[in-house]
């Protein structure tokens, strides 16, 4: 609301400036054409700025403070997780916003449905969108499964096996069967790393997102808890599933790109894509 008010105030000021200079330009005597021209340009610039206030008022203040071609709208983190991990908090100019995510587990597949079942299922889903008079976002997200920890474990085992092999190789009395066994282990970890890294494993998640505002963080958190209960009960009743609140790092998968596409998993995939291109 504060931003809406500042938008209106900026618009009114610009229109006032524009009108004043437009009238001044009109009242200039014929001999002062140059002055009229300058006044007209100022009036027109004010008119264009007034029009751009409709959609871009949020940019004007930061643009005046711009450094090196970067307009900084907000230098802080976009959000932070609440202490209980059940909500995401965003601080606005005049309110605190709490957002929660509700997981909608859907296990049905259209391939097992008759036309009528399929129609009923789609109808049930369309009913979810009319659950609340406050806007809710229903999202279906396809994301990369995080294999970072798994890959790290395989890499550790591979390094251990390679280390064992080089130590054994350096020993004078090392037996060939022992060497072959360790070499086999190294090959096994290499193959496992290859197969796990190459596969682009993905998961599909459906979730509902709802936001409420409050004067303080506590108020917003209390309100979001109530709203989340209302929405998750509605979803559970409509679809016959058990909708649950997404919390902690699980919520980050729905928010941050590096959780949606985990770095190590991605780097490995990119490495293989690059290698394949090279071949």
């Amino acid at each position: 609301m504060a931003s809406r008010n500042s938008q209106k105030a900026s618009f009114v000021i610009m229109i006032a400036v524009g009108l004043i200079f437009a009238f001044l330009s009109g009242t200039m005597p014929q001999g002062l054409g140059i002055v009229a021209f300058v006044f007209s340009v100022i009036a027109l610039a004010a008119a264009i700025l007034a029009m751009s206030m409709r959609y871009y008022s949020y940019l004007f203040g930061p643009m005046l403070r711009m450094k090196g071609g970067s307009v900084v709208l907000d230098a802080s983190d976009a959000f932070y997780l609440s202490q209980n991990g059940n909500a995401v908090i965003v601080r606005g100019d005049d309110a605190v916003y709490a957002t929660s995510f509700i997981k909608v587990p859907v296990y049905s597949s259209a391939t097992e449905m008759s036309d009528e079942q399929s129609y009923n299922f789609a109808n049930l889903f369309s009913r979810i969108v009319s659950l609340s008079k406050t806007p809710i976002r229903i999202t279906s997200q396809l994301y990369s499964i995080n294999k970072d920890d798994y890959l790290a474990r395989i890499n550790t085992r591979l390094a251990e096996a390679e280390n064992k092999y080089s130590i054994l190789q350096a020993q004078k009395g090392a037996k060939k069967p022992d060497l072959d066994r360790i070499k086999g282990e190294v090959t096994m970890w290499h193959n496992m790393l290859d197969s796990v890294s190459k596969a682009n494993s993905q998961a599909l998640e459906v979730y509902a997102q709802v936001t409420v505002s409050g004067g303080t963080e506590d108020e917003a958190l209390n309100l979001i808890a109530l709203k989340t209960d209302e929405i998750s009960s509605g979803i559970s009743a409509a679809l016959g599933v058990s909708a649950s609140v997404v919390s902690g790092t699980e919520a980050l998968v729905l928010l941050e790109p590096e959780y949606m596409i985990p770095p190590t998993t991605t780097t490995e995939l990119m490495r293989y894509a690059q290698a394949e291109k090279g071949m």
Binding site: S109, T111, F121, A122, S132, T134, I136, Q141, N200
Partner: peptide
């Protein structure tokens, strides 16, 4: 639902499809 599943089978990268709705 059938069309949706077919679409999902043809997408091999992360994406989100969102509907924001209010009664």
């Amino acid at each position: 639902p059938g069309k949706w599943e077919k679409a999902m089978m043809n997408i091999h990268f992360p994406f989100r499809y969102s509907v924001i709705a209010a009664a």
